[in-house]
């Protein structure tokens, strides 16, 4: 039994749960996402593409009979089960389009937005739920930790890669490794988790292992979170996923002026592509980062293609082991 798969699907209503638990382990391991849509059959996103549950423990490339269509009531029940009958506790994250469930899995939702004061106050009539199965891969950054931090320095590092190249997975494992002393000393890491993907906090508790000396800022916008972390937790490293435009870049500058190193990810298919991005490119040219790590693509997620030093590594932090 695939543990991550089982903990995810066991949080669904009995009828859907039992259907999904019929799959043997080899099938469970390739399922990345379970999508439930009102008026449509249940679909599975696997490594080989979209599949349907045929009801006998096998995948089907074609939709099942009409009798297996999910109803709006069943989608509502899914939402209530996933929130452990605590919908009120998830209102804010539902307005952002997702919720984190037990085990660190994420459920994206779509439905009818209700507006108040020009923003979404809540979502009603949820019509689709996509449950993404989180599989924390420990050790994926083992080589990187040693090469980047093993000499006692704490450089600022930017991890870039194409979509689905494993940036978030590598970042999470680097945080865990640093905060567990795997670089030869314990590093204080503040994790700014705007989208709830790094720590996957549920009722304040991180569902993913982020290490002993990490502090999680769940749901904070990146710029504000970095500032707060710097003021409040005196971190050695601030970890942030998916650096974007000018506001994020300015936040990075002020954090580094405050003495912390940055460990961040950004979308780019190549190192040259990273230099061309607004915000990120400016930071790279200014020497805000000491190292840039390029990951391989989606066909080999979580693997490193290249690590490049940018100029002379700044001796921002030297820790004597």
């Amino acid at each position: 039994m695939d543990v991550a798969y089982e903990t995810a699907v066991r949080q669904l209503p009995p009828k859907i749960r039992e259907l999904l638990l019929l799959f043997p382990q080899d099938k469970q391991q390739v399922v990345r996402e379970v999508s439930m849509r009102a008026g449509k059959p249940l679909t599975l996103t696997t490594g080989e593409g979209i599949r349907f549950a045929s009801g006998n423990g096998a995948f089907s490339a074609f939709p099942p009979p009409a009798s297996d269509i999910l109803t709006a009531q069943e989608i509502g029940d899914c939402l209530r089960f996933l929130t452990e009958y605590s919908l009120h506790s998830f209102e804010e994250s539902l307005c952002r389009g997702y919720l984190t469930v037990r085990g660190g899995h994420r459920a994206g939702i779509s439905g009818t937005g209700v507006h108040k004061d020009q923003s979404i106050s809540h979502v009603r009539d949820v019509s689709s739920i996509s449950l993404r199965i989180a599989r924390q891969i420990r050790g994926v950054s083992r080589g990187l930790v040693q090469s980047l931090y093993g000499t006692g320095e704490t450089p600022s590092v930017l991890i870039v890669g194409a979509p689905a190249s494993g940036k978030t997975t590598v970042l999470r494992d680097l945080v865990r490794s640093l905060a567990n002393g795997e670089a030869g000393r314990y590093v204080r890491v503040s994790v700014i988790d705007e989208r709830g993907e790094l720590g996957a906090a549920l009722h304040g508790t991180a569902q993913h292992d982020l290490g002993v000396t990490s502090d999680l800022f769940d749901g904070f916008y990146k710029a504000e979170g970095m500032q707060m972390a710097l003021r409040a937790m005196a971190p050695d490293v601030i970890a942030v996923d998916e650096l974007g435009g000018a506001a994020d870049a300015q936040a990075v500058r002020s954090v580094q002026n405050g003495g912390a190193a940055i460990l961040a990810t950004a979308h780019a298919g190549s190192i040259e592509g990273a230099y061309q991005r607004e915000g990120i490119g400016a930071l790279l040219r200014e020497g805000a980062f000491d190292r840039i790590v390029l990951l391989n693509g989606a066909d080999s997620p979580g693997t490193v293609r290249a690590v490049q030093s940018i100029g002379i590594p700044s001796a921002r932090k030297t820790v004597f082991a």
């Binding site: 209530r80 929130t83 452990e84 009958y85 605590s86 919908l87 009120h88 209102e91 809540h122 009603r124």
Partner: peptide, 10 residues
């Protein structure tokens, strides 16, 4: 009722 709706409805 409890946990099945948003806060104001509950």
């Amino acid at each position: 009722l409890v946990g099945s709706y948003d806060l104001s409805a509950q």
